[in-house]
């Protein structure tokens, strides 16, 4: 697979070999960074971050990754300060920005926006979230975090908790986990079950899938508990949101029967689904997960730029 010039739009475009390759490059870069403090692979290269929708972690970690590679960053963090306000099309915005940069990272509220951007641009485009569709770099950093914590992904029992219906993070993660020999527990209220087509896809690929609403009963068997926020903004109906809001909270009491080695993950931001008392426990892995964003995005930027 030729990485130079490649777009990163959807986890569906990745084979298991691609995923493993990125994770290995990220691990190598993390070690190099620890040793040298800063790197210069992307010296003279410019990243454009086009955030039509707000974000804290994703934008900052892409920018941090580019700086750590020795490159520089231009961009915007809200569409309101751009010509989009004047009615400029997405295609024209992309064609303009690519004159100023070597790689584009885009987040947009519309599903498919990153795919369209990649078709229009000559330079590589990386999807940092397109509406409720895909967020492939989050999936890769989630896998990286698991692999770094356990030394492997195969053989683990993983629970996905919370909004499994609307959450793009858990959809992509489940699809990527299907490449591995894992057992999945899908824990959610009835109203927020994982879409049937995804469960069918997982089963076709040989993943053992269990659906349940019982968090406490499931915890003792888990190696990883991946918690997600119930996202108010994705609900078409406020009443439905109120019915499921606060259905689960992971706290020390809930975790008392967990394996010693259980790791709790969360893509963040969290609201009240993980109590802050868990932060100091041996189970908390979510801030380490945030850190993983940097080496994984360094790997993707470096590979697509062809500088590694």
């Amino acid at each position: 697979m030729e990485w130079k010039g490649r777009d990163v739009i959807s986890i569906r475009d990745f084979s298991k070999e691609d995923i493993e390759f990125v994770l290995n490059v990220a691990e190598r870069l993390e070690a190099e960074l620890n040793e040298k403090g800063s790197l210069d692979y992307a010296k003279g290269k410019i990243l454009a971050t086009l955030f039509f929708e707000p974000s804290t972690r994703t934008r900052l970690s892409f920018e941090s990754a580019m700086h750590r590679l020795g490159g520089s960053v231009i961009g915007f963090s809200s569409a309101s300060s751009t010509s989009v306000k004047k009615g400029e099309s997405l295609a024209d915005t992309i064609k303009t920005v690519e004159q100023y940069s070597d790689v584009i990272v885009i987040r947009h509220s519309m599903e498919g926006a990153a795919r369209l951007a990649a078709e229009v641009a000559e330079i590589p485009v990386i999807n940092a979230g397109d509406g409720s569709n895909q967020h492939p770099t989050q999936t890769l950093l989630d896998l990286y975090t698991i692999k770094r914590a356990f030394g492997k992904i195969d053989g683990l029992t993983i629970g996905l908790l919370g909004d499994l219906k609307y959450g793009r993070t858990v959809h992509s993660l489940a699809e990527a986990l299907a490449f591995y020999n894992v057992e999945l527990y899908l824990i959610s209220p009835e109203l927020l079950r994982m879409p049937k087509h995804i469960i069918e896809e997982l089963q076709e690929k040989g993943v053992k899938v269990h659906e349940t609403s019982d968090l406490e009963g499931t915890i003792p068997g888990l190696d990883v508990l991946y918690v997600t926020r119930i996202q108010r903004e994705r609900f078409p109906d406020e009443q439905e949101y109120l019915k499921v809001k606060g259905s689960y909270q992971v706290n020390c009491e809930v975790l008392k029967n967990a394996k010693e080695t259980l790791k709790v993950m969360h893509p963040l931001p969290r609201v009240d689904e993980i109590h802050p008392e868990v932060d100091k426990s041996k189970h908390a892995l979510y801030f380490r997960q945030v850190f993983s964003g940097v080496p994984v995005r360094m790997a993707l930027l470096g590979l697509t730029l062809g500088v590694l």
Partner: peptide, 12 residues
């Protein structure tokens, strides 16, 4: 059929 799909808003 997805009203929020980019293909319903941009030239594609």
């Amino acid at each position: 059929a997805n009203p929020n799909c980019v293909s319903n808003h941009e030239y594609t």
